[in-house]
Every structure is written in C-alpha cells, then in structure tokens.
C-alpha cells in the first residue's frame, strides 16, 4: 500500500459525505440537549420565582423583540445557504450572503451583550445580574454567540473553498449539505431562544 491508496480514498465521496453529515447531526443532538437544558432552566426558574427574584421589582430588561433581532440573521443565513444548495449557479453569492448574515448576527449579539440593562454595578467595580431572568438571558445569548462564531467559521470556510480546483466537487456538495444541517439547526435554536425570551 502506498500513500495514494490510504483509507480516505477507499470510500466514495457520497459515502464520506453521508458519514460526515451523520456525525454533524449527532453533534446537533448534543447541542440540542444543551439547548433543552437552558430552556428547562429558564422556565424552571421563572415558574419557581424564588423570593420573587425571577424579575425583581424595578428591574430592566430587553424588549421581547430583541431575541428575534438576533435570530433573524440566523434565519437569513440558513435560507441563503439552502438556496445555494438548490441553485448551484448562485452558490458563490449565497455563500457570501450566509457569511455576511452570520457576521451581522455576531455583531448584533455582541452589541446586546455589551449593553445589557440588567447589570447591577457595585462601588468596588464589581457587578451582578439582577435576578433569574437576567441570568437565563445571558446564558441563551452566550449560546447564540457561540453558534454565530462556529457558523461564521464554517461559512468562511465555504467561501474560501468555493471554486478551488483541488477540492472534490462531489464531496464539497455533501459538505455543503452537512453545513446546511448545522445552519438550519442554529436557526432553529435561535428561534427557540427568541420564543423563550419573549415570555418573561
């Protein structure tokens, strides 16, 4: 055996592609469990409302629309990528749109995190979060931020790889579909987060 027939070349690109997609979907299951845990925590604390501390009297919060503002770029990215998979001629454009949408979303989420209205500053320069809602919100926002960073990495890779001659086109198509699974999932996760944070 020489290096040219090493195992990666034993399997057809379709087989490798399907395998990779399954792997990503299994990781989505793990990420889904994580999201479930966050949503569970949100409603658990909300319904328990210990010492009326879920949303203390006089506390500030984001508007219900804020979650949707952040979710929108996820949705645009997922749809754009899906169009690119169907209309291969538009693939380069849609991949760039996907990347731009995710970058915009990343900025929006970062901006929200940098301007949270429910931080309580103390005299010593420290701070704390005002209640269960505030804590749960920042957790969900952090997860969105993580999704934007990871999605952005994948989208950047797809943009940079587009049209490169040494990339196997069949395998690349499968990887596009695999990326599509991830983009769809992070859009669903963002919608779920937006729905949840709409219910204060």
């Amino acid at each position: 055996m020489t290096h040219t027939d090493f195992h990666i070349h034993h399997d057809a690109p379709e087989v490798v592609g399907r395998r990779e997609r399954l792997g990503v979907r299994l990781l989505i299951v793990a990420d889904g469990a994580f999201l479930f845990g966050m949503i569970f925590s949100y409603f658990y604390l909300r319904n328990l409302n210990t010492n009326n501390g879920w949303f203390p009297h006089g506390a500030h919060r984001f508007s219900a629309a804020s979650g949707w503002v952040v979710a929108l770029p996820f949705i645009v990215a997922a749809i754009s990528h899906r169009i690119g998979l169907v209309q291969r001629a538009l693939a380069r454009t849609t991949t760039v749109v996907t990347l731009l949408a995710l970058l915009v979303g990343l900025y929006l989420q970062w901006h929200q995190l940098a301007h949270m209205p429910f931080i309580i500053h103390d005299e010593g320069g420290g701070f704390s979060f005002n209640g269960g809602y505030a804590s749960s919100w920042v957790l969900l926002a952090g997860a969105n931020l993580f999704h934007y960073i990871l999605g952005g990495f994948i989208a950047l890779g797809l943009v940079l790889r587009h049209g490169r001659t040494q990339v196997d086109p069949t395998l690349e198509l499968w990887r596009g579909r695999t990326a599509g699974s991830w983009f769809t999932w992070i859009a669903v996760a963002a919608i779920a987060s937006a729905l949840v944070t709409s219910i204060v």
Binding site: L45, L48, T50, N51, G53, W54, S128, L139
Partner: peptide, 17 residues
C-alpha cells in the same frame, strides 16, 4: 465568576435546578 444567580435563592435562583 460573573455573579449570575442561577443557584442563588435570594435572587431568583434555586439549588434544585
């Protein structure tokens, strides 16, 4: 690290969670 209150019963948290 950041003084969130997931498990602080004074501030809407719960050890049960």
């Amino acid at each position: 690290s950041f003084n969130t209150t997931f498990f602080d019963a004074h501030m809407g948290g719960s050890g049960w969670l």
